[in-house]
Amino acid sequence: MWMYDKKLEYPVRVTKPDVQMAKYLMTQYGGPDGELSAAIRYLNQRYTIPTNRAKGLLTDIGTEELAHWEMIGTMIYKLLKGVPPEKIKEAGLGSHYAMHDNALFPSDAAGVPWTAAYIQAHGDPIADLHEDMAAEQKARATYEHLIRLTDDPGLIDSLRFLREREVVHFQRFGEALNYVHEKMERKEYY
């Protein structure tokens, strides 16, 4: 089960509303390499992963990704707060406004809604952990793109934090993968 904590994992400072940046950030809210994909991918893979280390990691990183999803949601909420429809239309989010007003919706930066087709579960620890490591690198690269798209120092600070977390997650998944290999060599399973 999960219990909610009424706090963010890391502060989200937004200096001024910026519809264009909100649009770009949606890729991390509901895009293929976004935080929602990450959370669902890991929390869904954990049931059949064989080692306790990987079960722990998928549970804990999956949970942390939900906290990142909340940080991205907070960024978008703050960037769109109080912005009138004309400004939203000008910045290319007119079709988002037509369907959602200033509300959030899990879609990518081009408005394509989130789909489970972004994630996989093979029940094979080698395949699954490799997918997870690739996902972390893709998210890291996406954060680098996003950092280059804004000059808001507060936003850059939060995006740097999220980028750094992807690097740590990649490292930990790599360690879990090595441990699976060790176990296989010792013929503890397969």
Binding site: D5, E9, Y10, E64, V168, H169, E175, A176
Partner: peptide
């Protein structure tokens, strides 16, 4: 709480 999150992941593999 963040220090705990970071240590939790580290301890999962160590």
């Amino acid at each position: 709480n963040f220090v705990m999150t970071e240590l939790r992941l580290y301890l999962d593999t160590h």
